[in-house]
């Protein structure tokens, strides 16, 4: 149940804003209804396929069609307004929010930046981004394990997005599920940290296969862990030959200049 308005949205996604405790918008899963066409008990109704009663319909439809169509609408909106949308993905704790906290002040020197934060619960991440003074909205997915195109569509309408700007979307910390859901972004940026294993790209290949950019974070800890960045890069490039690779430390700032430069160049592409 929603703790703000009391309505029943067990596990449903919700939009929230930092510093506005009354603000919340439920994102419904319209269309999933459990009405039944007829009230048939199972007695005497054996679904026996008698001639004329069963019929095959060729559907040939992508399972994720609805999400993909909406993602393309989002993409069209972003393109028309020259908004570069980036989808940041990683397992929990690899430093996505810390990375955003460090690159946003650099990026906003040239372009306006807005952020959509995704987490199951809390506005903690949105609060951290809010402190930077950029527009941010939090999506709480409830029990959901990923953001989808509908959530993004609802969320960016609540943000005052400017033309020629950058939209950073921080997905739910999860290296599996978010790989499948197109949000309408221009780039998927996968973040891993040196406190994880260097075989992560091999263990979670779908994510690395889908990504455009890979950022290895927490390089300041390399002296303390058994992590081989060369091997990790090699593993990532085996899965995806077109992956752009960056090594950074959000803590010390090392490597961030190259990453922001690359993102700025992406902005300036026609």
């Amino acid at each position: 149940m929603c703790d703000t308005c009391g309505c029943s949205t067990e596990g449903g996604a919700m939009l929230r804003k930092p510093g506005e405790s009354d603000y919340h918008v439920h994102i419904g899963d319209e269309g999933h209804s459990h009405e039944h066409g007829h009230d048939h008990g199972h007695e005497g109704h054996h679904h026996d396929h008698q001639a004329g009663r069963s019929r095959k319909i060729e559907v040939e439809q992508d399972v994720l069609l609805k999400n993909n169509l909406l993602a393309e609408r989002n993409r069209g909106y972003f393109e028309a307004r020259n908004i570069l949308a980036l989808n940041f993905l990683s397992s929990p704790g690899s430093g996505k929010t810390s990375l955003l906290e460090k690159i946003i002040p650099l990026l906003r020197l040239k372009h306006p930046v807005a952020v959509i934060e995704g987490d199951q619960q809390t506005t903690n991440d949105a609060d951290r981004i809010h402190a930077l003074g950029v527009p941010v909205i939090q999506i709480n997915t409830g029990t959901g394990c990923h953001l989808d195109a509908l959530m993004i569509n609802r969320a960016f309408k609540e943000l005052d997005l400017q033309n020629d700007s950058l939209l950073c979307i921080e997905n739910v910390g999860n290296l599996v599920c978010p790989a499948m859901f197109d949000l309408g972004e221009a780039c998927k940026v996968v973040v891993i940290s040196v406190t994880e294993g260097d075989d992560k790209p091999l263990k979670y290949p779908n994510m690395f296969h889908e990504a455009d950019v890979c950022v290895l974070n927490k390089t300041d800890l390399l002296d303390y862990v058994d992590f081989d960045p060369v091997q990790c890069r090699k593993n990532a490039l085996l899965i995806n030959h077109h992956l752009e690779w960056f090594e950074v430390s959000a803590k010390t700032g090392e490597g961030l200049e190259l990453l922001t430069q690359w993102l700025e160049n992406r902005m300036e592409l026609p």
Partner: peptide
């Protein structure tokens, strides 16, 4: 060579359904 492009195997499609109609 290791320069391999995946050409199929990522599809996820509802191919067809069989419906039951009235008498």
């Amino acid at each position: 060579s290791l320069k391999i492009r995946i050409v199929s195997g990522e599809e996820f499609i509802i191919q067809s359904i069989i419906i039951e109609e009235g008498e």
